[in-house]
Structures are given as C-alpha cells and as structure tokens.
Nucleic acid binder design. Structure first.
Lengths: 188, 188
DNA sequence: TGCATAACCGGACTACAGTCCGTTTCTATT
DNA sequence: AATAGAAACGGACTGTAGTCCGGTTATGCA
C-alpha cells in the first residue's frame, strides 16, 4: 500500500505542473520551478515521475485512458463493430486530435533520453491496436512493424513542425496520415 | 571570404568529433570533450556549428551530399530514368541504409531544441524529392504533406528503437517503410 | 611595411536535468 | 501509546548544453 503523503504529493506535483504549463507554456517551466511552486523538493518530483518526459506522460495519461477506453469498449467506428479500415481512420483521427490538443506536452514526453516513448504503455497499446486492425485487413503482412511505421508521423516534433512552422491546418495533416494508412489497408 | 584560421578550426573540430565519436560512442562524448581534444575553446565549437545537433548534421553532410548527387545525377533506379515507384523504393532504401550506418549521429542531429531537423537543407531536399516522385505517380494528391508522412518513419529515435530495442533486422524495417510508400504510389 | 577593423578565439558563466544520501515522517505491530 | 523500520522527503551536488564578452589575430588597404 502506498503511503498517504506520497499519493498526496504526487497529485500536488501533477496539479502544479499542469497549472504552470498552462500559465507559462511547457518550454518555459523547469523542473525546479515545478518543485518550488509545489513546495516540495526536487527529489520528490523525480522519484514520482522519473524524468521530465515521465511527468509529461503522466499528464497525458488521463486523456489517453479515455481514448483507450473508447477504442476498446466505445461505439463504432472507434470501438468494435466497424470494418477495420474505418476503425483505423477513426483511431488515427482521434489520436491526432489528442496530440494536437496537447502538442507541447507530447513533444516533452518524447524528448526522453533514449526513446523511452516507445517503451511506454500507451505507445504499446496504440501499436497493438493498429496491428490488430492490420492483421484483420491483411493477414500475412508484418503487422507489428507496419503499425510502428503508420504511427511514426504522429511524432510530436513532426506534428509541431507541420502545424506551427509550416502552418498546415489539422485537416490537411489528418488527410495525409489517414490516406497512407488507408492505402496500406486496401492494397494487396 | 572566410578567414584561414576559421576554416582550419572548423575542419579540426569536425575531425576531432568524428574520432571521439568513433572511439567512445556519440552519447559518451560531450561538447567540452570535443573542444578540449581539439585544443580550442567551447565558443569556437558553438560558433561554427550552432549546437550539438548542428555538429552532428555537419558530420552527416558528406554522406548526404553523395546520396543527393546519386539521386539527382546518378544511374537509375536511384537517379532519373526509372518509374517513380521504383525510384522511391530505391531512395528510401538508400536513405535507410545511410541512417543505419550513422544511427547515433542521426539521433543526435534530431535532438534539437525545436525540430531544427525539419528546417535543415538536407531534410528539405529529401522531402522535395519524394514530393516530385509522388506528383509524378499521383497528380492531384497533397504531395508535400504526404512526403513528410512517408519520411516520418525514418526518424532516428524510431529507427534506433526498432533495431536496437526490438531487434528487428534492417530488411524487415525496410520492407515496412517501402511497402507503405509503394501503397501510396499505387493506390488511387 | 604598418595600421585599422572586422572576424575570430577562448573560457568563465548561467541555467537546467538528473543523482545522491542524510534526515524526517508515516504506518504496521505490539 | 510506543516503537522499529520502511518509505518518502528535500536540497546540496554533479555534469552538460549553450551564452557572452574582453582579448587576440588575420586580412585589406594605404
């Protein structure tokens, strides 16, 4: 059983980080800032979240759980019931939307030492979901690896570049990502 | 005209970095190490290359120029003459190979503050090339954005994860990347 | 050759991520 | 209620990326 002060501090740090990120922007807030504003030591922040990417991941966790729930048990086409190609399109659209809403947080969560992102539970779940849909539409294909490739364009730094530097709107980015996925599903 | 000592120091730093990276691995060499081993000040290193990613990019530059030359003026299927789909496959295979040979350097070059990678000349050239091939095969498509999406799985951190953590061999990764690209070219 | 100046050089300095360990606080047990 | 020990706490400490600016050196020109 976890100690009461530990869970209290974890929540406190999470809430403080969320507030500071909203107030000043993710890039302008240091780990020291968060610890100081929460009134705890730096060590406490790092014990709970490992590193900056881990903290960002924890902040994304709630929204990712909601999406995951919708994918597993929600209504079609996101949830079960629709054809695989439609489910994939719906899923990619939803995940792109999530990434757009929290773009800086996603970037922070991916700026890890050695691609910790790909070892996160969330990424594994997304990959597994895409792989299942691929296998359904194209048995025999290397679904796992294709899933990684299909998810690659959702990387935070690319999304940020397309949207902020190149000023593409969400629909255009979505169409490109979805079209690629659709092609793979359809083709022999 | 550039000063003689400046070009001399630039070459010196480049050669020193290459040697240290080869000896100890990219991750284990700091910018201070490089400056010290080259016998110059830190400021000199940063003036010439901007940041760590810029130095990595400069080290990759030679190989990228060679590939670029082969793409523009070399023999088919990499160079002009082959059908667009074949050229795209050849190009992606060659670029994946380049990234595999210098994986840690590529990762270092992409660990930039704010996706500087996408603003590099090399990336712009690759994107333009892919876009041209796409337009040839599928007029009317959003070739620029699709090119970004097709290049996304070549990101260093994903490649490193697939190859080192998940232990996939190069052929399997290549097949997945190429298959996606092929699907997009073929499909309506 | 001597000079003016623009470019270059170097290393001290700042800010930040992440580690470490002595100290404090909680909780299960008696 | 007292206590022992595990777990959490916090802040000093380290290593590194990147900045800044006073001093130095190369180069074009007279």
């Amino acid at each position: 059983m976890p100690r009461a002060d530990a869970v209290r501090n974890r929540e406190l740090v999470l809430a403080t980080a969320e507030r500071l990120f909203a107030e000043r922007g993710v890039a302008a807030v240091s780990m020291d800032d968060i610890a100081a504003a929460a009134g705890v030591g730096k060590g406490t922040v790092y014990r709970h979240f490992g590193d900056r990417a881990g903290l960002a991941l924890a902040l994304l966790d709630e929204d990712e759980r909601i999406l995951q729930e919708a994918v597993v048990r929600g209504p079609a086409p996101l949830g079960p019931g629709a054809p695989a190609a439609e489910r994939l399109t719906a899923f990619l659209t939803a995940l792109l939307d999530l990434h757009e809403r929290h773009l800086d947080l996603v970037v922070a969560s991916e700026t890890a030492a050695a691609g910790a992102r790909f070892r996160s539970g969330a990424y594994a779940a997304w990959r597994a979901h895409v792989a299942v849909l691929l296998r359904e539409a194209r048995p025999g294909a290397d679904a796992e690896t294709l899933a990684d490739v299909i998810l690659a364009p959702l990387a935070g730094d690319l999304q940020r570049h397309l949207r902020r530097d190149r000023k593409l709107d969400g629909a255009r980015v979505r169409d490109a990502v979805v079209e690629i996925a659709r092609s793979v599903m359809v083709d022999s």
